[in-house]
Amino acid sequence: MIEIKFRGRGGQGAVSASEILGRALFLDGKYPQCFSLFGGERRGAPVVGFLRVDEEPILLKCQIYHPDHIIIFDPSLINEDEILQELKPGGMVLVNINEEMDFLQSLRKFKIGFVNASLIAKDTGVGSTLNTVMLGAYIHLTNLVKMDTLVEAVKTMVPSKMEENIQAVKEGYRQVKIFEVEE
């Protein structure tokens, strides 16, 4: 079983990203389970989405405390202590970041992906929603889902700007910088 945490701000598409990825895994014949911490959804406020996936139906009906992967949609939400505390050993981190890579030194014991998602989203014309860029980068980092499957899921779940979003997935995939674990 793989557990994934999506951290972002309302409006960035962190929760919808968990649902699109869940849909892609479902299309792959896996057993995904998606949920978000509800109650306080509004634009700009921190939001958290979760995804579990397994080869068999998931029985757990409880929260995720120690994810295998953490995806951070907003640079202002990067909290190194929190990641160190939560992430499972051997875990992976994907962050939307617009600065140079010597940032996040403390996390280099994890496989880590950096992507300038805000810029790519703007350039591809999707605007301020980062879900498709981040997912493109995520599948490059983790190889959890094939590009074709993700694009198919995007087509069923994204309400508008279809071509732009598919382009965003591909650019996210292409532009993510991946750093293997530093010994």
């Binding site: 649902e19 869940g22 479902f26 057993y31 389970q33 949920f35 998931i58 009906k61």
Partner: peptide, 10 residues
Amino acid sequence: AFFVSHFMEP
């Protein structure tokens, strides 16, 4: 609430 109503599953 939440654990069934909002959990998305196959």
